[in-house]
Amino acid sequence: MRISAAQKTENENRIRAAMDRLLRGEMPPGGKCDIKTLANEAAVDRTAFYGTRTYAHLRAEFERRLQALQQAGDIPDPHEAQIARLKAENAKLKDRLAKSEQTIDELTDFRTQALARLAAQHEETVRLREAALGTSRVSRPPTPRTTVIGTCS
């Protein structure tokens, strides 16, 4: 079924208005920033956007504008923005977890080395004490005898 020029112009105006709303981030409930939602919002058959159909040039314009926004870092679809934010947060958390695991490994190694050193020091202390007790038989020189030198009478 062919549409008149006036109907085509009216449809294009509705499509452009819906396109602007979607690219500003005004999504309908359950909608995304895509051709399907654009067609639903403009009340136009989605197949009219593909191939050499009536509104294929508007699909190309929509995709070009959407890509330009995404390259500029602006994601109009709140759902897609949330996904991008969560992916970035997930990457940060994975990095943080890896650093924490590395720190735990380093501290575990340090603890093991410290315990080994303490055990070695304890053994050395025990050995030195035993050696000191074993040689503690210090002989004292005998006390000198005092001789009385007698007086001769």
Rank of each mutant, 00 (worst) to 15 (best):
Q70C: 11
H79G: 12
L58V: 03
A6M: 08
E124N: 08
M1S: 07
R46F: 09
I75N: 06
R129G: 01
T47R: 15
R21W: 02
Q102H: 13
K94G: 00
P141L: 13
R24P: 00
L133K: 10
D34R: 05
R2F: 06
N90H: 12
M19H: 02
N40P: 00
K32Q: 09
A91N: 12
A5T: 15
A60R: 08
E10F: 05
K32C: 06
L118M: 11
N90W: 06
S153E: 06
D20R: 13
K99Y: 01
T151D: 09
P142M: 04
H79M: 09
A72R: 13
A68I: 05
G150H: 07
A68H: 08
T112L: 13
A5G: 11
A68V: 07
L58H: 02
A84D: 14
G30A: 04
I104H: 06
F49P: 00
N40G: 06
Q82W: 04
A5M: 13
S139H: 09
S4N: 04
E41Y: 09
N13E: 14
R2I: 12
G73A: 05
A131S: 10
T47A: 14
Q7E: 14
R64F: 09
N40W: 05
G31V: 09
E80P: 01
E12G: 01
Q113R: 15
S100I: 12
Q113C: 06
R137T: 10
I3H: 00
D77H: 01
A6R: 12
R137N: 11
R117G: 00
L128M: 09
I15M: 08
T52E: 06
L118N: 05
P29W: 11
L86Y: 13
Q67F: 11
Q102S: 12
C33I: 04
G73V: 05
